[in-house]
Simulated scan of single mutants.
Amino acid sequence: MRVTIEEDKCCGAGQCVLAAPTVFDQREEDGIVILLDETPPDDKLAEVRQAIRLCPALAIKVEV
């Protein structure tokens, strides 16, 4: 799996961090998403998909 983010779309809601904390984090100064693991293990796929569903800005993509 390969995860990508579009930082310019991110609104800093933080839902991705709650759904997949080993894959996503947020910058302290503005809350914009930080991708911690571009190629997380397959057992994190459900968490990543949940983060995608919860993202209000549609800033997360995954290729499986």
Rank of each mutant, 00 (worst) to 15 (best):
I32M: 11
A19E: 08
D25Q: 13
T4F: 05
P56M: 05
L45C: 00
I5W: 05
R27D: 11
V33A: 10
Q50D: 12
G14I: 12
A59W: 02
T4M: 04
E38T: 01
C10G: 10
E7R: 07
V64W: 04
K9C: 01
P21R: 09
Q15S: 09
A51E: 13
A59H: 00
P41K: 11
A57C: 01
V64D: 08
E7L: 02
E6K: 12
V62Q: 04
E47N: 06
V3M: 00
G31A: 15
Q50P: 02
D37N: 14
T22P: 02
C10R: 06
I34E: 15
R2G: 02
C10Y: 08
I60K: 00
L45F: 04
E38N: 00
A57K: 01
M1I: 03
I60M: 01
D37Y: 12
E28L: 04
V23A: 15
R49C: 03
C11M: 12
A13M: 10
V62L: 05
E63P: 00
A46H: 10
Q26T: 14
A59C: 05
F24D: 14
R27N: 13
I5Y: 03
L45P: 00
D42H: 04
V3D: 00
P41Y: 12
E47I: 07
P41R: 06
C16D: 06
I52R: 00
E63L: 05
E29P: 00
R53S: 10
L35N: 09
T39G: 01
T39L: 08
I32Y: 09
D8T: 10
V33K: 05
T39F: 03
C11R: 08
C10W: 11
V23Y: 15
D30L: 08
D8M: 01
T22E: 15
R49G: 06
E29A: 11
G12Y: 12
V62S: 01
E29T: 11
E29V: 13
L58K: 09
L36G: 13
C55A: 07
C16T: 08
D25T: 13
C10S: 03
D30C: 08
R53N: 10
I52T: 07
A20L: 04
P40T: 14
I5E: 06
E7C: 00
D8P: 00
R2I: 13
E6Y: 12
E29R: 04
L18T: 11
P56E: 07
G14M: 11
A46M: 10
A59N: 01
R27H: 15
A19G: 04
K61D: 14
L58Y: 12
D30A: 08
A51S: 12
P21E: 14
L36Q: 15
Q26S: 13
R2P: 00
I5R: 03
R2A: 07
F24E: 15
L36Y: 15
